[in-house]
Design a protein around this nucleic acid. Structure first.
Lengths: 186, 186
DNA sequence: GACGTAAGTAAACAAGTGTTTACATAGGGA
DNA sequence: TCCCTATGTAAACACTTGTTTACTTACGTC
């Protein structure tokens, strides 16, 4: 019988982490409004009241979940020579797993959650990108990057067209790659 | 005393129109979830129960309001030679009035409303655009148009950055114009 | 002018929400 | 071993929501 790690049944840190992890899943899947505290805590296997106790409420939990999902390095760790191909590969092939944008889109219906997404998107994505791009047109470059990315995910999220449901159409993919590459090259 | 048009205080068609008009305002401003039937009917000056009676419920009212706001001619009536400059002018300068996209973004949180926006966006925008573009790459062109448009509105809607709050930055605007123009030229 | 139907209203309804309160209990330290 | 506190639970709370039901009233018709 293999030795198993002792798992104390009462561990606040572990419980918080479980709630946070479940929140990321449920918020991304159902959106802020439709994701119930009871849904999240059921997935985490704990009592609904712990959301208020440990995070201060559903809205704060959303903020924590989104903040944990945001990581600008997912863009800025790529080499600029091959930026276009690589970022599209990341977005198109593992986009729903790697990007918090669907989670943000489905929170746009709630005004408070929307204010949080706007702030985090600016501080945790737009600003780091601007620094990474550098130069005097860095702000415009960051804006272009945001627009193309938002457009791509909004398109996949909102327009479940049969002809684009599977792998992305080759010439559309090539266009996207050139769009992203042009941002760093300009 | 000037002759005034007789306004019957009881006119079902007029009441329906008033509700529909108010729904467009409120849905665009607050989103589907936060827009209450009571908000809409208060603006229209009627009783909340009339939403169910005349439209079959809040969801059907949303569908009717969105359908009434969608008009592909806002894009396809433009000359292709000057398409880029003109469409950007329309979107950037009168975008919130002319485009139903903000209304759609803020409905993404509700799964049923989202299904409606997806269907209407496909049938009332994507398909007509595809026909208008024509040729064998029409689908890809329509997809590119959707992505750039969605990206632009998502950006303005979700990222209220101070530096882009007012009129759009000139070089960013030039880039957008070239993007749209390239779609029709390719 | 009386009447019946369409138009509109007010209020109750039923369901779901996030949060709070009161209570139970596991587990480590004295 | 005995507590005492952190951890977790169950249930009630307070509130909002879209919708339905019962009722009132204005308008066209005979």
């Amino acid at each position: 019988m293999a030795t198993t790690i002792e798992q104390p049944s009462r561990d606040a840190d572990r419980t918080k982490a479980a709630i946070l992890f479940a929140a990321q899943q449920i918020f991304a899947e159902k959106g802020f409004a439709e994701a119930g505290v009871r849904d999240i805590t059921a997935l985490a296997g704990v009592n609904p009241s712990l959301v208020s106790r440990y995070f201060g409420g559903k809205l704060k939990l959303f903020e924590a979940a989104l903040d944990a999902a945001l990581d600008p390095r997912l863009m800025t760790d790529l080499p600029k020579e091959n930026f276009g191909k690589l970022i599209v590969a990341r977005f198109a092939d593992e986009g729903d797993r790697v990007s918090p944008l669907p989670m943000m889109f489905r929170a746009a219906g709630d005004s408070e959650a929307r204010a949080i997404t706007a702030r985090l998107l600016r501080d945790r994505v737009f600003e780091p990108l601007q620094i990474w791009f550098g130069g005097e047109v860095a702000a415009v470059k960051a804006a272009r990057f945001m627009m193309v990315s938002l457009g791509f995910f909004a398109y996949r999220d909102q327009l479940p067209l049969a002809e684009f449901a599977g792998p992305i159409e080759p010439s559309l993919r090539a266009w996207l790659e050139s769009e992203f590459q042009a941002i760093v090259d300009d």
